[in-house]
Simulated scan of single mutants.
Amino acid sequence: MNEQAPDVPPNAEQIEYWNGPVGLRWLAYNDWLDERTAAYGRAAFAAAAPEPGEAVLDIGCGAGATSFELARAVGASGSVTGVDISAPLLGRARERAAAHGLNVEFREADASRPSFAPHSFDLLFSRFGVMFFDDPAAAFAELRKTLKPGGRLAFACWQEPQLNDWYELPLAAIADLVERTPVDTRQPGPFAFSDPEHIREVLAQAGFVGVELAPFATPFYLGRGATREAMADDAMEQVFRVGPIARLLESQSEQINAKAREAIRAALSKIAGDDGLEVGGAIWVVTARAD
């Protein structure tokens, strides 16, 4: 008799991904990443409009930067729960919460399979934390159940890669050296919600109403520093530690890697300005509500 293979847990690939070397890299560069993405988070925060006394779930909270902003907004009479699948990032979040004296609960859990009681939250919020669900419609349907009647959803997600030079510029610099894999915007990843029609379809299937998308664009600073060289150094750290370049080059020869580094550095150096190494960044700010 053939034995059945054990069931693969939902989102298993993402859970392994964010608890392995990638999660540790994001932890090492978390302050850097929080600074670069803060403006996009503020746009989503403004749309969410958290109020004193509200209960908020911060989806994909990472090391807690957005959870702390939410906690300050809802005050002592409110509550914030941050949920993430990355144990390393949650460890940092708990350390920060203690240092800030903020009452935020952090849970290591898959937000697409929430274990919260129905009607627990007034607001579901996320800064770049909802694009990694293996079944987004089912995930949002489960999340909607945790909202109180009339509760709100607000999140930030990246628009298409072509509008985000922080992603495209390094890849374009090595286009003649390495063949890139096209981005599948229907698979879990940073651009899984880049198509506005897909967002509307997913949220409608999940039972949300009043779905609205607002475009927001602001410079993304890949590198900062006192000199162009320092800016390029800062940017190279990010490009090769967090993002697609490291994965694309890991199977290439040392010679190709050396040429790729040279090409990317040259491309980055060309765009260094007085305020830093500025590239384009564009998101959708998505809002919706429960019935």
Rank of each mutant, 00 (worst) to 15 (best):
L203E: 01
P50N: 06
A266V: 01
A154P: 12
A87S: 13
S86I: 03
D122K: 11
A71T: 04
R72D: 12
E69V: 03
P215H: 05
E229K: 15
R107N: 00
N2Y: 12
F121T: 04
R241Y: 00
D7W: 13
D58C: 08
N19Y: 13
F106H: 07
A12N: 11
L163N: 10
L33C: 04
L57N: 05
F216R: 05
F132W: 13
V104D: 06
D176V: 05
I245Q: 06
D7I: 15
Q162F: 10
R107H: 09
A76E: 14
V74E: 02
S79A: 15
F133V: 10
A49H: 14
Q162L: 09
R92A: 10
N257T: 02
G150A: 09
P149Y: 09
A288G: 12
F191K: 11
D58G: 10
I256Q: 09
L124D: 01
E201C: 08
A230F: 07
S120H: 02
I245S: 08
V211Y: 05
F216P: 08
A55G: 03
I15Y: 10
P161D: 00
G189N: 06
L27I: 01
D165L: 12
N164E: 01
G62D: 00
G20S: 15
W158F: 15
W166N: 09
A217W: 04
R72W: 08
R200F: 02
I199Q: 01
Q14K: 13
A93E: 02
A175S: 15
D275I: 03
Y17E: 02
D58E: 04
V80T: 06
D34A: 14
Y17Q: 13
P21I: 03
G280Q: 14
A98V: 14
R113K: 05
S86V: 04
R96A: 06
D291Y: 12
S67K: 02
S126L: 05
P182N: 08
I256K: 12
E160M: 13
R224H: 08
W18C: 07
Y17N: 11
L177V: 07
V211D: 01
A175I: 03
R186N: 08
W18F: 15
M231F: 11
A141W: 08
P9S: 11
Q162N: 09
K270P: 00
N19K: 10
F128P: 04
A172E: 12
A204P: 01
A43W: 07
A173D: 01
S67H: 06
E168A: 15
P219R: 10
E105C: 09
E35K: 14
E160Y: 07
A5V: 13
S253H: 12
A71S: 15
A39V: 13
N164T: 11
R144E: 00
E108N: 13
A258C: 07
G223R: 10
P196V: 02
V83D: 00
V56S: 06
W18S: 06
V80N: 06
A214C: 03
G75F: 14
E250N: 15
T66M: 12
R265I: 03
E201D: 14
G91Q: 08
A266S: 14
N30P: 01
G210M: 01
F140E: 00
P182R: 11
G273E: 11
F140S: 08
D84E: 03
A49R: 15
F116I: 02
C61P: 04
V279I: 10
